[in-house]
């Protein structure tokens, strides 16, 4: 079964900044009506605020709400799988996170 058979995925926000190779920061999963219902988000970091180091995840599509996480992702699991506003899994690779979202959608 192809991944695309459940949700339609498209690129979301891109990394910005001088000297940065643009990387996709999130993939957005759209349902058949074209509504975004899931997101796979890259954990960014480390960010320095004051004297503390954080990893960061944008919790909404416009990155207005940013979740700061005090630790590095365990086992390099740098992608979060989000369904609605809820984190349903984490993975080292974006496609694995996509699969986690798809698997959750398949559950009753």
């Amino acid at each position: 079964m192809g991944i695309g058979s459940r949700l339609n995925w498209m690129r979301g926000r891109q990394e910005e900044g001088a000297g940065v190779t643009p990387r996709t920061l999130e993939w957005i999963g759209l349902n058949d009506a074209g509504e975004p219902i899931a997101r796979v988000v890259r954990v960014q970091g480390p960010l320095l605020t004051g004297w503390r180091r954080f990893s960061a995840v944008a919790r909404d599509a416009e990155a207005k709400v940013v979740d700061l996480r005090p630790s590095e992702p365990p086992d390099g699991a740098g992608w979060l799988a989000c369904l609605g506003g809820q984190v349903v899994g984490r993975a080292a690779l974006p496609l694995q996170a996509v699969r986690a979202v798809e698997a959750r959608l398949g559950q009753p």
Partner: peptide
């Protein structure tokens, strides 16, 4: 193999999402 390899190339990821392979 697909998950790991395709993740390094965003165009390939789009191809994967589009065609399922």
């Amino acid at each position: 193999l697909l998950d790991t390899a395709v993740s390094v190339d965003e165009k390939a990821m789009e191809e994967y999402f589009e065609n399922g392979d």
